[in-house]
Measured scan of single mutants.
Amino acid sequence: EINVTSHGEEQAKHWIELAKRMNLDVEVEIHGDKIIITIK
């Protein structure tokens, strides 16, 4: 399980695309200006 804290939408999209390509599950939480991505 990987937790990524992203401070930008572009960076977040990059991680989500990467996870989808690798067929991994992704959870995205938004806390103000921080985007927390959990890849399982």
Score class of each variant (00 low, 15 high):
14 H>R: 09
27 E>W: 11
27 E>N: 06
3 N>H: 13
4 V>R: 03
1 E>Y: 10
12 A>P: 05
8 G>F: 15
36 I>P: 00
38 T>L: 07
19 A>T: 05
20 K>W: 15
1 E>T: 12
33 D>G: 03
6 S>H: 09
8 G>Q: 10
28 V>H: 01
25 D>L: 14
33 D>I: 12
29 E>Q: 10
22 M>L: 13
3 N>M: 13
36 I>E: 01
34 K>V: 10
36 I>F: 04
4 V>L: 07
13 K>V: 05
4 V>W: 04
13 K>S: 05
33 D>P: 02
11 Q>S: 09
22 M>K: 03
12 A>L: 14
33 D>E: 05
25 D>I: 14
20 K>A: 08
4 V>A: 07
23 N>M: 10
17 E>M: 05
7 H>N: 10
26 V>A: 02
29 E>Y: 11
30 I>P: 01
33 D>M: 11
17 E>R: 08
32 G>E: 09
5 T>Y: 03
28 V>Q: 00
29 E>K: 09
21 R>I: 12
31 H>Q: 08
26 V>D: 00
1 E>N: 06
35 I>T: 01
10 E>W: 13
18 L>R: 04
4 V>H: 04
29 E>W: 13
35 I>K: 00
20 K>P: 14
2 I>K: 05
31 H>N: 06
2 I>D: 08
7 H>I: 13
18 L>C: 14
34 K>P: 00
14 H>S: 08
15 W>P: 07
36 I>K: 02
33 D>T: 06
4 V>D: 04
34 K>Y: 14
36 I>Y: 04
39 I>R: 00
38 T>S: 04
12 A>W: 15
9 E>M: 13
39 I>S: 01
17 E>W: 13
13 K>A: 07
11 Q>F: 14
17 E>F: 14
9 E>K: 10
16 I>M: 05
24 L>D: 01
3 N>A: 06
20 K>E: 15
31 H>M: 09
17 E>N: 05
32 G>P: 11
14 H>V: 14
13 K>Y: 07
30 I>W: 05
17 E>T: 07
40 K>P: 01
35 I>W: 12
27 E>M: 10
14 H>P: 05
20 K>T: 10
26 V>R: 00
32 G>F: 12
24 L>R: 01
14 H>E: 03
28 V>N: 00
5 T>D: 04
23 N>K: 07
26 V>I: 13
28 V>I: 10
3 N>P: 08
29 E>R: 09
28 V>F: 03
26 V>G: 01
21 R>L: 15
6 S>D: 03
38 T>G: 01
35 I>R: 00
34 K>W: 14
31 H>G: 02
7 H>V: 11
20 K>V: 15
31 H>Y: 12
28 V>E: 00
25 D>W: 15
23 N>L: 14
21 R>M: 12
19 A>L: 15
17 E>P: 14
27 E>A: 05
17 E>H: 08
9 E>Y: 14
10 E>S: 10
18 L>A: 03
4 V>P: 04
33 D>H: 10
35 I>G: 00
9 E>F: 14
9 E>I: 14
22 M>E: 09
13 K>W: 12
20 K>Q: 12
12 A>S: 07
39 I>G: 00
17 E>S: 06
36 I>R: 02
30 I>Y: 04
1 E>S: 10
11 Q>E: 08
13 K>M: 06
5 T>A: 06
12 A>V: 14
16 I>P: 09
40 K>F: 08
3 N>V: 15
4 V>Q: 07
10 E>M: 08
14 H>M: 11
23 N>F: 15
18 L>W: 15
12 A>E: 07
9 E>S: 08
34 K>M: 12
28 V>Y: 02
25 D>F: 15
10 E>V: 06
19 A>P: 13
16 I>G: 04
23 N>P: 03
13 K>E: 03
11 Q>Y: 11
27 E>H: 11
32 G>L: 13
23 N>E: 10
14 H>L: 11
16 I>A: 04
16 I>S: 04
1 E>I: 12
20 K>D: 15
14 H>W: 15
35 I>Q: 01
32 G>Y: 10
37 I>P: 00
4 V>F: 10
23 N>C: 13
12 A>D: 07
7 H>K: 12
